[in-house]
Simulated assay, not measured.
Amino acid sequence: MAKHSEQIVARDADYDNSAAVPDAERFIPLWEDEARVFRDSMGDRARLGIPYGATAREKLDLFLPDGAPDGLMVFVHGGYWRSRHRHDWSHFAEGALGRGYAVAIPSYSLAPEARISRITLQIAQAVRVAAAEVAGGPIRLAGHSAGGHLVARMLCADPMLPASVAKRLAHVLPISPVSDLRPLVGLSMNGDLKLTAEEAAMESPILCEVVHRAPVTVWVGGAELPAFQNQAQWLSEAWDARIVVDEGRHHFDVIDGLRAPDSPMLKALFDA
């Protein structure tokens, strides 16, 4: 893993996870099918499409365990802030449900319709609404890739989570996060993201003022692109947070641990 430098020059290939993982195209339809089967199996323990804002994508799905929830996990999906929907990820609620937690999975507006700074505010609102729906117990945040960036941002001064929510934060798990957005400014994806140098710095967790001191575990696959391993390391160093390198895991299978209550990933999120 490379030491961080403010002078970072990135190429499109450095952040192209689909090109780096053999048969990467199989994951999206697989996830869609497994998520649909999972939702159907949940019956009335799935509360789908709870609005947290005014637009069509400002909705979350809430999955409830058997019995009263012991707390809440919020999972924020990735897709480079440009793609995917909450319905693609429902089955990744399985592990936390097995631990007696409710699980909220929000959608959010996508670039280029929305800038990343707006998406950050949407996720903060989604966390507020989910916390009101599950009013008791700890809150644990997990997010993958762009979602890892978004859950890390919840610990920053901007956006400011309400004190009633912040005091419930028990652990934050950014999985393969983008923690420094400045390298993205020169990439072709920025045609959609429209990041300026100022916004990229403002939205970078490694540069933010951390005001909520919840424990953080940064998780990254050992078979991921070097850029993502570096991004995880930079966040770990900036926040003095534990980092776990999940050997053999690439960008798409690194989140599989969310599906098993006793996986090392969920032990880190719930027991560390």
Rank of each mutant, 00 (worst) to 15 (best):
T217Y: 05
D70F: 11
Q122W: 06
P22G: 07
L169D: 07
E133I: 01
A166H: 02
I206L: 09
G49V: 06
G98Y: 03
Y15P: 00
M202V: 13
V178T: 05
I28D: 14
A268N: 11
E25D: 13
L169W: 01
Y80G: 10
E113A: 14
F27L: 08
S236I: 00
S188D: 14
D88Y: 00
S5Q: 15
S18G: 12
R39W: 02
D262K: 05
A93P: 04
I123F: 02
F92Y: 15
G79R: 05
A223L: 02
P183E: 03
V9C: 11
A19Y: 04
V127T: 03
A35K: 08
W234F: 09
P65D: 10
M73T: 13
A126K: 07
R242N: 11
G71S: 14
E113S: 12
P183N: 01
A10V: 08
A126V: 07
D180H: 00
P183I: 05
L110C: 13
R99M: 06
V134P: 10
G248C: 12
F252P: 07
V172I: 13
A163G: 10
A104E: 06
F92Q: 14
V9T: 15
D180C: 01
H87S: 08
A124F: 01
D240M: 01
V216C: 05
S109R: 15
M42Q: 14
D70G: 15
H77Q: 09
M160S: 11
V127Y: 03
V129M: 07
L48M: 12
F27N: 09
M73F: 05
G143R: 01
S176G: 12
P215S: 09
A114L: 02
V178P: 00
R153F: 00
A20H: 15
V76S: 07
A104L: 07
L150M: 11
D44E: 15
V185T: 15
L150N: 07
R140T: 15
P261R: 07
L97T: 12
G148S: 03
L269I: 09
V211M: 03
R82S: 15
A68M: 09
D70K: 15
K267L: 13
A227W: 00
T217P: 12
D66Y: 01
